[in-house]
Amino acid sequence: MRNRLKVLRAERDWTQAQLAVELEVSRQTVNAIEKGKFDPSLPLAFKAARLFGLAIEEIFLADSAD
């Protein structure tokens, strides 16, 4: 699964640590999600969507193989 978290964060000039505080996860988890190494759960994806004021599918994109 791909995502636009890094782009959305950069647009708002937030650091990974600041985003981690908002999502109540560790900075390492934000980094892993941004790099596509870890897929967040649905509740965490909803939390990110609410935070950015977007729909989940505007942030998280399924790979063609998914």
């Binding site: 708002r12 640590a17 600041q18 985003l19 505080v21 004021g53």
Partner: peptide
Amino acid sequence: MNNPNTETSTWAA
């Protein structure tokens, strides 16, 4: 959403 400026949270605490 305002720019978050805190580096710590209740979760981290």
